[in-house]
Structures are given as structure tokens and as C-alpha cells.
């Protein structure tokens, strides 16, 4: 999964903490950035790196919504369902999005273009109902119509070989393998 160079970087990173396990999330992000999600093999690898058990890592992953155990589509759209967005109609937006993709929330749409996830408050209450595309771009004042339009656009985006999950939806582990070393 990782090259020797990347593994060396992870080991070096872990050595900065008083306990190796403190760097578990960093390692999990690295796995997620590499292949788009965290698979069983990735968990075994992080187990070896951090000394945490499989259960402890699963506990961690299920606790944090930004870590995922299943593959996602080329794009991830997190639609907020917390109180402000709920009041402003996020439920209808989620239902419309679900109807448009034809699959349940959390599943990859049939075209493979998107995975829609409900999200806790994104801090975008002034733009409610809001969503976050690929953990970077905010989408504001959604309506059932606008979300369908957005999904259509995502569907029509040309399929790029390079635009796999790991590059497009890089999260906080985003550029760790390159920039992380300078810190």
C-alpha cells in the first residue's frame, strides 16, 4: 500500500509523540488519502504502526465522521442536517438528492460520480441549508432543485483517470506526504 519512503515518514511522524498511538488519526488519514477509504489491510497496517488493536481503530473510525471504512464516489457531498439547516429544509434537499442518485445515502451513485452523506453542523448556518463538496467547496442555500442541478453537473464532469478519491477529496491528511516533512 505505502512505499517504503511513505512508511518511513509515518514512523518518523509517530516518533514525535510521547505515545505512538497518538498518531493513529494521522496514519488513518494517510491510508484514506492513498486509496480513498480505509480498508482492512490499511487497518492492519495502522495496527502495526501504532500498537492499537483492530477494535480500538474501529472505535476511532466510527467515532469520527471524516474517516470512512467504505469506498466513495469521485465526489463527496456532505449535506448538513443539523438544526439551522433542518429548519431551512435540509431534509427535503437530502430526499431530493437521494431520489436523484437512486441509491441510499452513503452509497456510491450509479454513475460513480458522487456519494452523498448527511453531516453534522458545518458552521455554515448563514447559508442554510448548506453542504460541503469534497471537504473544500461550500455549497450554499440549497433547494431540492439546486441540489439536483449540482448532481447533474457532477455526473457530466468528464471522467478523469487522475480524479480518484484520494486526490480529489483529500482531507486534513491532504498534503502530508509532501508538505508534512517541513514541519
Amino acid at each position: 500500500m505505502f512505499t517504503e519512503d511513505e512508511l518511513e515518514h509515518l514512523r518518523e511522524h509517530l516518533s514525535h509523540y510521547p505515545e505512538r498511538r497518538a498518531g493513529a488519526i494521522y496514519c488513518l488519514y494517510a491510508v484514506q488519502d492513498k486509496i480513498g477509504y480505509i480498508d482492512d489491510k490499511g487497518i492492519m497496517m495502522v495496527t502495526e504502526l501504532t500498537g492499537l488493536s483492530k477494535t480500538q481503530l474501529e472505535e476511532l473510525i466510527t467515532f469520527f465522521t471524516l474517516l470512512r471504512r467504505r469506498p466513495v464516489g469521485r465526489n463527496v457531498l456532505r449535506i448538513c442536517d443539523s438544526i439551522s439547516c433542518h429548519v431551512m429544509g435540509s431534509r427535503q434537499v437530502l430526499e431530493a438528492a437521494e431520489a436523484h442518485t437512486g441509491v441510499a445515502l452513503g452509497e456510491i451513485s450509479r454513475t460513480g460520480s458522487v456519494t452523498i452523506l448527511p453531516s453534522i453542523c458545518l458552521g455554515l448556518c448563514n447559508h442554510a441549508p448548506a453542504a460541503l463538496l469534497n471537504d473544500e467547496d461550500e455549497v450554499s442555500r440549497l433547494t431540492p432543485e439546486s441540489v439536483q442541478k449540482l448532481l447533474d453537473e457532477l455526473d457530466q464532469q468528464p471522467f478523469q483517470q487522475s480524479a480518484t478519491g484520494s486526490q480529489v477529496i483529500a482531507t486534513s491528511g491532504h498534503s502530508m506526504l509532501t508538505e508534512g516533512r517541513d514541519h
Binding site: S53, K54, T55, Q56, E58, E59, T62, F63
Partner: peptide
Amino acid sequence: GDDFGVYCSGQKTTFRRS
């Protein structure tokens, strides 16, 4: 033991084996 734990958070919290 390390084959049993707490999964998820909030209302979805559940206790089970891996």
C-alpha cells in the same frame, strides 16, 4: 480485552465486537 468496544457516537453509540 481488545476485541470488544464502543462504536460510533451520540445516539448511534453501540457496544460490540469488531
